[in-house]
Each structure stands twice: as C-alpha cells, then as structure tokens.
Amino acid sequence: MINVEEEIVPMSLFFKKQYNLKKLLAEQKNPQNNFKVISVVGTNGKGSTSNYIYKNLYKNNKSVGLFFSPAFIYHNERIQVNNQWIEDEILLKIIEDSKPLFEKYELTFFEIWTYIAIVYFNLKKIELAVVEAGIGGMKDATSLFENQIAVCLTSIGFDHTDVLGNKIENIIENKIKIVKNNNKIYTTINNYKYDDIFKSFVSNEIIYCEPTNNLTYQKYNQGIAKEVLKLFNIQFDANTNVPLGRQSVLKEDPNFIIDGCHNFNGAEELVKSIKDLDKYTILFASSKGRENSEMVAFLKSKCKEFYVTTFDHFKAWELNLVNEDNKVYDWKQFLNDNINKDILVCGSLYFIPLVYRWFMGGK
C-alpha cells in the first residue's frame, strides 16, 4: 500500500481555471460510461453513504467499484473493486502510462484521480460504481459519468464557498444538478426544508429518506443507503462498518475519539452524537482559510477544555491567525500529556489521519 504522504500525483495541481478531463474522455470514446454509476453529493456524509452502499452491494454479489476522497492512510483506498483496494503495481503503472495525457490535457489533481478510477474500473470490468463527488456536483469531474442510475444527496451546508458560492441556493444548485435524465434523487428527511429550492432546479422525483435507529449522525447516511439499496432488492446491513475518521473510538475508559468534522454542519452533528461531551477535552485543527471559522467558538462552548493546533500539511491553517488563546504547537506531546482524559480530536480530514497513525504507532 502507498502511504498518502508519498506524492504520486502532484499536489500542486489541486485547482485550475480550466478543466479538461471531458476532452480526454471524449477522445477515448467516453470509457466512464461503460458501467453504471450511483453519484453521491453533499456537504457531509458523502464518504460514509458511499461506503454503506458499496459494501452492501458487494456483500450481495454485485461487481462494484468505489471512488471516494480524500484517502485516509493509503492512496489505494480511493479506488476499490469488490472490497479490494487498487493494487500498488497497477496504480503506479496507470499513472506512469498516463503521464503524457495528464500533461497534454493539464489535468488537475482530482481529475487525475478520477481518470485513474475510470481506467481501473474498465480493467476490472465492473458493472456498477459508487462515485463520490469531490466538490459540488454539476461542475465536478464526477459529473462526467453519464451512465447514472441514481443520485444520493447527503447533508447540505456551507463549505467550499469560494468555489460553490455563499448562498444556500447556489450550493444546492451545484450539487443537485449532477442528476442525469429522469433518475431519482435520494436525500435525508432533514433536507425537506429545501424542497422548494430543489424543485426550482430539477423536476426529478426526490425520495426523502428516514434515518435508521443508529445513535450517531450516521443514521441519516444509513437511511439514504437503505433506500437506494431497494433498487437492487437488497436489505441494508446495519452492521456495515463506517470508514475511519467518522467518530472513530480508538480507546475507551477514558475515551479517545477522532472525527473529521471539517465544517460547521459536521460539528453540529458530532456534538449531538457524543454523550457527555462537556467532560471532554477537544483538540481541533482546520484547513487554510478557515482561521476565522465559527466552529472554534461553537466547539469550545460544548466541552470541558478546548484547544486548537496545526499540523504538517500544505493545506493546514495558520495557527497564529486563529482567534483562540489555547494554542497547542506540538499536538503529539499534548495528546501524550492528556491521554488519561476523555479526548476528542476533530477537524480537517488531512489532520485526523495523522492523529490516527500516531495513536496506532504508539505514544
């Protein structure tokens, strides 16, 4: 497996003004349409919902792929087929063989990974893929999958406003317009308040999904997965594991929990899910550009002790710009010193994997 800290696709290609994957795929006669696709969009819960659907399809003998991001520990996690991650040799060979195309079409980081997934899914001759959008929907690289059979729309909130806009109508339009043809849109009952906005952009049937009996925020994601699986006459398995970093309890008594709540809506749901949070010490770190995030004051008001920190990543926020007195400059030492307390480490999905690797490797 290839660690995410190893740069196999240039991170400098994150965003560009022009996106050219569509041109590349057209030149290759649109190989992304050789298999059916379930598109998953939303502000929070995309990875969990995708995982629930994918795992249950595989358990019921479907030839199925999964594409999601970001990777947690290994690059290979992003692209899976039938419960197996893409092999190192194949991943590296696809990248090496495709470099001239990446350069010719000046693909972005996410376009490159989307293309790798398409090549691999065709190599494995899958019949169906669960595909999580990167940012938004209709302008996302994953909108190029035309052989769509359903859309899942998870929670809706304000995130990536620099790309999607700062009005809820703009955000909804960008996400929901990924739908193709007359496909149904499956969303949580929590989004019913946006029904009029939905219908102003699409005429597709919208299925509002009831949550399951799960005690965490995953009940909404499970509810969507449960309804989608009915398309295949598959009963949802409530014991399906959720991906790492989603309210993952690494230790009990005292508790050590990690969660990638990287926006305000995610923080709200996390707070509702953890019992006796007022007894916890929270360590929080976010991404660049979010130094003034309202999450800081919100989380601080919900726990016993609150601290902010930063981490070694080019997307990490500038700690000195954060308006919070309790700053931690060595998060590993801080966690070592406080390991006998109930701890919640949360924030950026680029930070949480670092904490997980530290914890599993010994303190």
Rank of each mutant, 00 (worst) to 15 (best):
I90E: 14
P31K: 08
R290M: 13
D97T: 07
Q32N: 10
L21I: 10
A117C: 08
E132R: 08
H75K: 12
I116W: 08
Q235H: 05
D259T: 01
L101G: 00
K300V: 08
A225L: 02
I90N: 12
C152I: 13
L107G: 06
S301I: 11
A26T: 14
K184I: 14
N122Q: 06
I112C: 02
F256K: 02
I343F: 00
T212W: 09
D325P: 02
C346I: 02
E268V: 15
T188C: 08
D97Y: 08
G165D: 12
F102S: 06
I73V: 14
N166M: 05
D162K: 07
N147C: 10
K99Q: 15
F351N: 05
S200R: 10
V81H: 02
F110S: 13
K36S: 15
C152H: 02
F35L: 06
L91P: 07
F145C: 07
N326D: 09
G289C: 07
N60E: 10
Q333W: 01
G137W: 12
L144I: 06
I168T: 07
D196M: 04
T142R: 09
G134Q: 05
E268F: 09
F334Q: 01
F264G: 00
L128I: 14
V355N: 01
I185G: 03
A238P: 05
N340E: 09
C261Q: 03
Q148C: 08
K230F: 10
S98A: 10
Q18H: 11
N292H: 14
S273M: 05
G165R: 11
T161A: 02
F232S: 08
L107M: 09
M11C: 06
P10T: 10
